[in-house]
Simulated scan of single mutants.
Amino acid sequence: MTVLSVNINKIAVLRNSRGGDMPSVTQAAQTCLAAGAGGITVHPRPDLRHIRPDDVRALAGLLRGGAAEFNIEGNPFAPARGAYPGMLALCAETRPAQATLVPDGDGQITSDHGFDLQRDGARLKPLIAEFKALGCRVSLFMDADSPDIELAAEVGADRIELYTGPYAEAFEAGDYGLVLEQCARAAERAAKVGLGVNAGHDLNQANLGVFLRHVPQVAEVSIGHALIGEAVYDGLAPTVRNYLAVIAAARA
């Protein structure tokens, strides 16, 4: 069964817009887990625009020793800044089950492309080894049409996370066959070299089932923006259960 890991960054965005601790990211995580989510994802950034290092620490305490996984996303090249200690240091402190490495910068509203391993592979390889020495499974954010899928295994990654933004955009436009086929081929290429496959970005209740039926290798989907947006109307726990039902139907 594909694991649903709920990205709760948007809960922190709402909290930060007013200050204080409402809504609570830890309570949101607890609600998602109680509804059946298999993991919690956060993507702290150096500019502290949403999830902050203290949130990561609190969530690590909540998830430590539990059945659900903690997944921390971030740019491993981004240096420490102010309260942000850097991704490697934060993972050393909190020991998540998975570290998802993403090549994003402050100027990006959200992650919008995968790694170029021809350019960054040599620099990533020793960092990946350090994350794995902490006990973290390492996933690399990759474009579905990247020629570098196989290189992810060579630099030591355990999984790739397929960037599904282009698929979601094409699905919305009603012409997604080519992009979906790219995703399926990328997953097959990854599996052939021993890599696990995750997926994330702009997946929602409408497009997720189709995606999973065509890309059966997916071990985990990380979903935040759409899920939290849908939860505004339907409630957080019911929305998580809706996603789990979509996953179950796709895997039936």
Rank of each mutant, 00 (worst) to 15 (best):
G121Y: 01
G107N: 07
V102Q: 01
D120R: 05
A97F: 14
L124S: 01
T110R: 15
A97W: 10
V102W: 00
T94N: 07
Q98K: 15
T110L: 12
D116P: 01
G121H: 01
T100Q: 09
R95Y: 09
G107F: 09
E93F: 08
R119I: 11
H113W: 09
D106Q: 14
G114F: 03
F115Q: 00
D112Q: 12
Q98A: 15
G107T: 05
T110H: 14
G114R: 04
A97P: 11
A99S: 08
E93R: 05
S111M: 03
L117N: 00
A122V: 07
R119Q: 15
E93G: 05
D106Y: 12
V102K: 01
D116T: 02
R95S: 11
R95I: 15
A99W: 02
P96H: 09
A92L: 05
D112W: 14
S111D: 06
L124F: 04
G105H: 13
G121S: 02
L90H: 01
T94W: 06
P103K: 02
Q118S: 10
D106K: 12
Q108F: 14
D104F: 04
P96N: 09
Q108P: 09
G105N: 15
E93Y: 04
G107A: 08
R123K: 11
D116F: 01
L124E: 01
E93S: 07
A99F: 09
H113I: 10
Q98W: 15
T100W: 09
T110F: 15
D104K: 10
D116Q: 04
T100H: 07
D106P: 13
A92T: 11
L90E: 03
E93H: 03
R119F: 06
